[in-house]
Design a protein around this nucleic acid. Sequence first.
DNA 1: TTCAATTTTGTAATGATTACAATTTTATTA
DNA 2: TAATAAAATTGTAATCATTACAAAATTGAA
Lengths: 138, 138
Amino acid sequence: MDYSNEKLINYLKEHNIKPSTIRMKVLNYLFMNKTHPTVDDIYKSLKEEIPTLSKTSIYNTLDLFLEKGIVKVLSLQEKELRYDIDTNLHAHFKCEKCGKLYDFPISPNFFNDDHLDGFIINDRDIHLYGICKECNDK
Amino acid sequence: MDYSNEKLINYLKEHNIKPSTIRMKVLNYLFMNKTHPTVDDIYKSLKEEIPTLSKTSIYNTLDLFLEKGIVKVLSLQEKELRYDIDTNLHAHFKCEKCGKLYDFPISPNFFNDDHLDGFIINDRDIHLYGICKECNDK
DNA sequence: TTCAATTTTGTAATGATTACAATTTTATTA
DNA sequence: TAATAAAATTGTAATCATTACAAAATTGAA
Ligand SMILES: [Mn+2]
Ligand SMILES: [Mn+2]
Ligand SMILES: [Zn+2]
Ligand SMILES: [Zn+2]
């Protein structure tokens, strides 16, 4: 079930983003598909309901969302870029077999490390790679 | 002080890599510059002593080193790729001001997490971003 | 409705990486 | 040593995701 226009508009406004058709569609997609999609995933899916859609618009929209802090871009191995609507602190596990990207929680004081005294940490990427339980059980 | 040819050749042979001029030069560069260099860093530096050097050779060599497991490639934010001759478990801190990439140790059982029971972890990337002590003190 | 601002589109440019064939170097054999 | 084969290196062209940018469409105030 898609999000209501009202909810999407409010969410965008709360984050100082002027609502527009495409911004609402992309936001709805990200809310509905918490699979850490790529630019192409988003583009291909939305292209079906908006045949005139341009990929540049997806880039523009995601760049704006990044700037306003409502998405985070994950730089994975093999130059793979994925977008995450969940900007709260958490880590990721990428299955090398099925390609699925799993979330898992980490503690905020994960990095209370003497070696980093005096360092200001603004951002953290914790990416694990391997075989997920599901693929492993087969 | 550069590494001796003998040492470079032995190191390559130990890792099932046939020694060659360029492989030795790249390996020596990586041993001497533990700064997590980019392809371009390596290319530009070696180009000075080997004017005929082709960038393709750097790509070839690093791909071979990766395949044989003697380097690790770090996929950082902004699509930045850096090469690390230290393949032991450790984490990285990138300073957003000076650009320097710091190593810091982490414990092997860092990821003994219930959420990952049944998952096989083959590789870990822990990348922090912020301002380093040195930049911060200024 | 008119007009300006903003959004969206479409196309061309960019730039890092890759593919691949030609050349050079190295090692092997006669 | 010379001839030959194998491997390494080079140089150029192709690829492809992303970016730049100008044109077109849409929106929203006056
Ligand atoms: Mn996530
Ligand atoms: Mn390192
Ligand atoms: Zn899997
Ligand atoms: Zn710094």
